[in-house]
Amino acid sequence: MKFICALAFAALSSTAQADRIFVSNERGNTVSVIDGTTWEVLTEFDAGLRPRGIIVSPDGKKLYVCASDDNLVRVFDTATYEEIHTLPSGPDPELFVLDPSGQRLYVANEDDNLVTVVDTETHEVLAEVPVGVEPEGMAVSPDGKFVVNTSETTNMAHFIDTETNVIRYNALVDQRPRYAGYSQDGKRLYVTAEIGGTVTVFDIASDGSPTEVGKIRFDVPGVQTEWLQPVGGLVTKDGKLLFVALGPSNRVAVVNTETLEVEKYILVGERVWQLAFTSDEKYLLTTNGNSNDITVIDVARQEALRSIQVGQQPWGVAVAYGLN
């Protein structure tokens, strides 16, 4: 067993990727930084009150963190971990997305039924878009024309036209939608429903309109279905596989996006929440809120390789590519 671990470690080390991994620790009020080559925890820095949503700017230089209980977004330098400035976010920001240019930030304000649009350069609030109750999941279409927000109590995905900041389409999904994600070609959208226990799959037409084409369901022998709660999700670049974090069941499902069948369940840490790929998509990282660690999954082999201890109650994970 030790020998296998050593081999795995060697394999990891040899694929020298200069990724830097950032994990928001919701209860610890910090961000943990992990070297994507050695898997070493480099540091843990203060990130404001109740950090949850976390993303890296397209150029890899800035780290955006939703400091939910500070009611703002904190922006850090990904190299020095210094706070550069803050951005207004509206109250209780939880999750957000950047448009592909990095110019606009779209923030879900859970307590106020709004999506706030913020200019990352002028730091101004450009618009507030009224959405359903308890907005949560956020996705941006690869062409930047639509931002999708899911509202947990309304049980809808709202498609916001980014030109007008007005909702163009609404689509019903199952109970407590948590995450929305487009495939890279923009032709598919996946929406997880935590309490519904499903992922709703939409085909996206050229005008951005959604058509529901199926539902993904989960079943693990010996595990109560109530525990199989889909939360975070992520599609591979080729669009062939969808990974779904199943919360308190401590598993990540690997879904074939053609058949919409689960191919495998990978056992990870406790209460698995959000997911991120490394730059080469060799590894999938999962945040595990109750075991205070992240799991590194080998994407090709669909196996968990190791877990890395981070701060208290890790929530989100983002990867800065190409840093030294």
Binding site: N113, G132, V133, T154, M156, I167
Partner: peptide, 11 residues
């Protein structure tokens, strides 16, 4: 009422 009316406005 607030919760369902918010949803209702979209429908």
């Amino acid at each position: 009422l607030q919760d369902i009316a918010t949803t209702g406005q979209f429908m």
